[in-house]
Lab assay of single mutants.
Amino acid sequence: RRRVRAILPYTKVPDTDEISFLKGDMFIVHNELEDGWMWVTNLRTDEQGLIVEDLVEEVG
């Protein structure tokens, strides 16, 4: 499975499927959606939700 790491922190918009995260958080990518969004699991918090790919980098 594809893994990505947050390069910046992010605070979710209330009442959306987004998740908040810290710089350095690792995610497993489940689905890549339109307009650069990804459905992921945050490995630190075990939370699932949407993040935008501009805020993460690939992990080898």
Rank of each mutant, 00 (worst) to 15 (best):
E18Q: 12
K12I: 03
F21D: 00
I28K: 05
S20W: 02
F21G: 00
V59N: 06
F27I: 03
R44I: 04
V13K: 12
L50E: 05
R3Y: 13
M26N: 10
E57C: 11
L50G: 04
L33K: 11
V13L: 11
P9I: 05
G36C: 06
L43W: 04
G36S: 06
I51N: 00
D54N: 12
W37Y: 12
T11L: 10
W37T: 09
T16C: 05
N31F: 14
F21R: 00
D15V: 05
V29H: 02
L43V: 14
A6T: 02
D54S: 12
E34D: 14
D15Y: 12
R5T: 08
L43T: 14
E53S: 15
E34P: 12
K12N: 05
P14R: 07
E18G: 05
V52G: 10
V29P: 01
W37A: 07
T16S: 14
Y10Q: 05
D25F: 02
D25T: 02
Y10P: 04
V4G: 02
V4N: 01
G60S: 11
N42Q: 07
E18I: 06
F21L: 03
E53Y: 13
R1Y: 15
V56Y: 02
D46V: 11
D25G: 00
N42W: 01
W39E: 05
E34H: 15
V40T: 04
E32G: 08
I28V: 12
K12T: 04
D46W: 14
V40C: 07
G60M: 14
D35A: 11
Y10H: 12
R1D: 15
G36A: 05
H30A: 06
E34R: 14
L8H: 14
H30P: 00
D15H: 12
E34S: 15
R5E: 04
D17F: 11
E58V: 08
L50F: 09
L43F: 05
W39N: 04
E34G: 13
R44Y: 05
I7H: 06
E53R: 15
L50H: 05
R1E: 15
W39P: 00
L43G: 03
L50P: 04
T41F: 06
E53F: 14
D15G: 11
E53A: 14
W39M: 07
W39G: 02
D15P: 04
G60E: 12
R44D: 04
V4K: 04
E53H: 13
T11M: 11
G49N: 00
W39I: 06
R1C: 15
W37C: 10
G36Q: 05
I19S: 02
T16Y: 02
L22Q: 13
L22C: 14
V40P: 00
N31E: 15
E32V: 14
D17P: 10
P9A: 12
V4D: 00
V29Y: 02
E47Q: 11
K23V: 11
R1A: 15
G60L: 13
R2G: 08
T11H: 09
H30T: 06
D46I: 12
F21E: 00
L50T: 09
L8F: 14
T16D: 02
R44Q: 05
I7M: 09
L22V: 12
V29S: 02
I7T: 09
R2S: 08
P14V: 09
N31S: 13
N42L: 12
D54K: 10
V29M: 03
V56N: 01
F21S: 01
N31I: 13
S20K: 02
Q48F: 08
E53N: 13
V59Q: 07
M38H: 03
L33I: 08
I7K: 12
I7Q: 06
Q48E: 07
T41Q: 10
E47I: 07
T11E: 12
W37M: 10
H30E: 15
P9V: 05
P14H: 08
P14K: 09
N31Q: 11
L50I: 14
D25I: 02
G36K: 08
T16E: 02
E53Q: 15
L8P: 02
L55Q: 11
V4A: 05
R1V: 15
V40N: 00
I28G: 03
R5M: 08
D46F: 15
D35C: 15
E34W: 12
G60Q: 13
F21C: 07
T11N: 12
G24P: 00
D25P: 01
Q48T: 07
E58N: 12
V13Q: 13
D35Y: 13
P14S: 09
R3S: 11
F27V: 01
F27E: 01
H30V: 10
S20R: 02
R44A: 07
E47V: 07
E58Y: 06
D54V: 09
V13G: 10
R44E: 06
V52S: 13
M38E: 01
G49D: 00
T45N: 11
L43Y: 06
T41K: 07
R2F: 05
E57V: 12
G24M: 04
V52F: 14
Q48K: 13
S20V: 02
L33N: 09
L33S: 11
H30C: 15
D17H: 11
M26I: 13
N31V: 13
T45W: 02
E57W: 05
E53M: 14
V59T: 08
